[in-house]
Amino acid sequence: MSAPVHEEDRAGGPPAPPRGFRAALARLAGAQKSAKGAPAYSRFVNRRLGRFLAAASYTAGLTPNQVTGISACFTFAGVALIALAAPAPWVGIAVCLALVVGYAFDSADGQLARLRGGGSPAGEYLDHMVDSLKISALHGAVLISFYRFFDLDHAAYLLIPLGFTVVAAVMFFGMILKDLLARAHRARTGTAVPPAAAPSTLRSLLVVPTDYGLLCASFLLLGWPKVFLPVYALIFAGNLLFLLAASVKWFREVGALGRPEGGA
């Protein structure tokens, strides 16, 4: 899921537009958003894939909204396969590739917006609407696949994708709302954006269970239901534990926004 894009490169006035793929790629290499808090796949793999796709999209004359549309096409093709096709090794490979490419284009749309001078409210709205749809539709498709194709010992296993839908939606909304409230507070008080902390590789590895890229990769196992189900359940458990801990932290951070400086 891509983060909001607001800032423009203003150093010395608007930079000259890059010419060609290599120039665009070089510009993007120095215009990356902070990697703070990003899990390992998203940080080290997906963002780099998105950089190449953003440069290629720029060279092809695509807009960020068009790239968001391409991302949605790949992602929802994968989601449809999960729900409609019986689990098989080829299905797992096809789903994984569709989701991985869709996720890379999801990173590319924000990078392309920065390359073109900054994003727009409409583009941010479209990006987040697609993200919110995909995180619910993906787990809904897994629920359908479990019900139609999996030989489940207990119907209670159906609660796993149902619970994952709730956790993913709440986590996404919580992150977006926290960012929105912080931006509104800074705009109201004139507070400067705090400098981004140095990203931690250890933290990126520790939060891997919450990485959407890991979830995409897990569908390689879809052809082996008895392996896929416990792996999917473990990823769900990791996301649930993270959400419980993060919700407390986010609540404290949002609570501090309305507190006078130096207050308890």
Rank of each mutant, 00 (worst) to 15 (best):
I235F: 03
L115V: 04
R148S: 07
F228T: 07
A11W: 14
F164L: 06
V45F: 07
E253L: 13
G78W: 01
D179H: 14
L206R: 12
R183H: 09
L206M: 13
A237R: 01
E253I: 10
A264M: 04
A23H: 12
V227F: 02
D109C: 02
P39D: 10
V208S: 11
F21D: 10
V91R: 00
L215S: 09
R10Q: 15
A56Y: 05
V130I: 10
P161N: 03
Y232K: 06
V142S: 01
L143Q: 05
L112A: 04
A83C: 06
V100M: 07
G50Y: 10
F44A: 13
A29Q: 12
Q111F: 08
L152H: 00
L202E: 09
W90F: 02
E261Y: 15
P161R: 02
P64S: 06
T191N: 15
L240K: 07
A40M: 09
G110S: 11
D9W: 12
P194W: 05
L138G: 06
V142C: 03
A60R: 05
A38E: 08
P17E: 06
L84Q: 00
L181D: 01
V91C: 00
P18G: 05
I160Q: 03
G92I: 00
Q111M: 09
D211Y: 06
A196V: 01
P199A: 11
K226I: 13
V130H: 08
F21Y: 14
A187V: 14
G263V: 02
I160M: 01
A56P: 03
V101Y: 05
A237Y: 01
V254N: 01
A155M: 06
T68V: 12
R51T: 12
V67P: 06
E8S: 11
E7G: 15
T68S: 11
A24C: 09
G12M: 08
T68F: 09
L181S: 02
S247A: 08
G174Y: 07
L240S: 10
K36F: 15
E7W: 15
A23Q: 12
T68P: 10
S71F: 04
M175K: 15
A60Y: 05
A187R: 15
N46L: 14
W250Y: 15
A24H: 05
G213D: 00
F44K: 12
A23Y: 07
L240N: 12
A233V: 11
N65F: 13
F146P: 04
Q32R: 15
T201D: 09
T59P: 03
S218Q: 03
G140Q: 04
A88N: 00
P209Q: 04
D131C: 10
P230C: 12
G255V: 00
A104H: 03
Y212E: 02
K178F: 06
D151G: 04
Y103R: 15
T68D: 06
K36H: 13
P260H: 06
A155Y: 11
H128L: 08
L62T: 00
R183Y: 10
N46D: 08
A187W: 08
P15M: 07
L162R: 10
